[in-house]
Structures are given as C-alpha cells and as structure tokens.
C-alpha cells in the first residue's frame, strides 16, 4: 500500500455500508454538524480529516450513537447501516454499538487482565457457549489485533501494564472480538509514538479485508497512507468527499486545498 501512487489507489468494493443524509447535530444551542451527506463503503478505510473542532469526531460518534450518552446532544437526519435507520425507535443503541465497534483516541484498556479485556464484549453478548469457545474468540481477536505474539504468555497480566502501542492494539482486539461490521477509530494513533503508529496503521490496512473502517485523524500523511476514501470537514460542513488520491492531489474545493497545503487548520 505504501508504494502505490496516490492517484491510482482505488476502493476495493462499491457497496455502501453506511449512508448519512442531511445529518444535523446540536450540542445545546451549538450547531456542530450541518447538512452532512456521506456514503461509506464496505471493506474500505474512510478517513475524516479537518481542523480541530470541525465536527469530524462528533460525526463519527453519531455512527454508533455514542452521542446518546451526552445529555445535551441532539441528532437529526437519517443515518442507515445496510439500509436500516440506526436512529429508528426500534433500534437498541446498545446492540448497535456491538455491531459498530469503536476505538478511542487514548488507549483505554479496562483495569483487568488482557484476557478479560478482550473477553468483555463476547461475555456481555453471550457469544461463547463455554470457556473453550471463549478462549478461541479471545485468541482470534488478539491475532486480528496483531498483538497475540506479544501477549500470549501473559494473558492474565493486567492490560494497563502494556506499552501505549500495545494497549491501543489491545483495544482494537477488544473491539474486534464482538465481531462488528464497522470499526470506528477516533484518532487512534494520536497518543502513540511513530513505531506504534506504523504498527497500528498496518493493522488498519489488514482490518480492511473484513470491516468497513472509519478513521478520524489529524495527520494528513496518515489519512493518505491508510485510507481509500477521504472526507474533509470544516466548521461542521462536509466540504469534500472522494477518493483519497483525488482529495490529496487534486481537490475540488478551495478550502480543502488550503487545509491540505497547510494554510488553514
């Protein structure tokens, strides 16, 4: 992925996984997201970029209804996953979040063992019939999180004792363990050093085989490295959305060009 020229990189598949139409988000009186329309494809990495406070994280949190946990937050518009409206009254946000996994800016392993961190989701959702199955799920998730080899001998050591990069991969493994269909990542590398960042980026590229990945990032290089599609947010608007190569080499909007060349942001 690193050597292909940006312009020639293409999304693997074309089916739309998540579709947002006319989305508005309010924090109290503050209109944080304005008229956002976007289609996120399956088995693709979509990057949200934009200056701080542009609403990219807020929009990301709409996709698994994490904003429901904030009292003053109100979401309008229509967001569908596989054609089903996730803000429908019949949808249980708790079930939705099992389907749409999330990785946060700061690694946040629970103060439990590595094993229990990964087994947490499967246990809650009753995914394993017995201990052996659970073991299997945990191992599979840790392998997918590209951390199995580092932790297989100390599964019962506390997750908080790992290094920052390992913790973040543990959190990715934890999110993967509930077998989500979409993986949301909110600046997953901003607290990591360059080496750990490279490992996590490599992992994101592998996860694309199975999931639709949406990543919010402040680093344009990172967006260019890992994503196939890029959306540029500015002041609550989705300014431009398209092929990553297109956005970075030949943006249509003036504001996108200014941001990418470092004039705003």
């Amino acid at each position: 992925m690193y050597d292909a020229p940006l312009t020639r990189r293409e999304a693997a598949v074309d089916d739309v996984k998540i579709s947002a139409r006319d989305v508005q988000v309010f924090y109290g009186d503050n209109h944080a997201i304005k008229d956002v329309d976007v289609d996120i494809q399956d088995k693709t990495v979509t990057a949200f970029i934009g200056p701080s406070g542009c609403g990219k994280s807020t929009f990301l949190r709409c996709l698994n209804r994490m904003n429901d946990t904030i009292d003053i937050c109100r979401v309008e518009g229509r967001i569908t996953i596989d054609g089903d409206d996730i803000y429908d009254k019949r949808v249980d946000p708790v079930q939705l979040r099992a389907k749409v996994g999330m990785v946060f800016q700061k690694p946040n392993p629970f103060p439990k063992s590595i094993y229990d961190n990964v087994a947490y989701g499967p246990k809650i959702h009753g995914m394993a019939k017995n201990k052996a199955e659970l073991d299997e799920i945990v191992e599979r998730a840790l392998r997918r999180g590209a951390i199995w080899d580092e932790v297989k001998d100390r599964l019962h050591a506390p997750g908080t004792g790992l290094s920052g990069g390992q913790q973040q991969r543990l959190c990715i493994a934890r999110a993967v363990a509930t077998e989500p269909e979409v993986l949301l990542m909110d600046e997953p590398c901003s607290a990591l050093d360059p080496i750990a960042t490279a490992q996590v980026e490599e992992l994101i590229d592998e996860l694309r085989q199975t999931y639709s990945v949406v990543i919010v990032t402040h680093s344009m290089q990172q967006a260019a490295r890992v994503s196939q599609k890029t959306a540029f947010f500015h002041l609550g608007h989705l300014v431009e959305f398209g092929e990553t190569g297109q956005i970075f080499t030949n943006p249509e909007d003036k504001r996108t060009e200014s941001y990418i060349t470092g004039r705003i942001g």
Binding site: N64, M66, T69, V94, Q95, L96, R97, A98, K99, G101, M102, V103, F104, K106, N108, P109, F110, P111, Y120, G121, I124, H125, C171, R174, A175, T178
Partner: peptide, 21 residues
C-alpha cells in the same frame, strides 16, 4: 470517562458498565 466510553463502545449497557468496569 474513557473507561465508560470503552465499555459503551463495546455494546455494554449502563449497569453492565458499572458492575464490570
């Protein structure tokens, strides 16, 4: 809050989050 977010993000309910995290 990151602990709670992590748990909610995995599809846990509030009481599961409180009891287990």
């Amino acid at each position: 809050q990151a602990m709670r977010d992590g748990s909610y993000g995995l599809g846990a309910t509030q009481s599961e989050t409180i009891r287990q995290v």
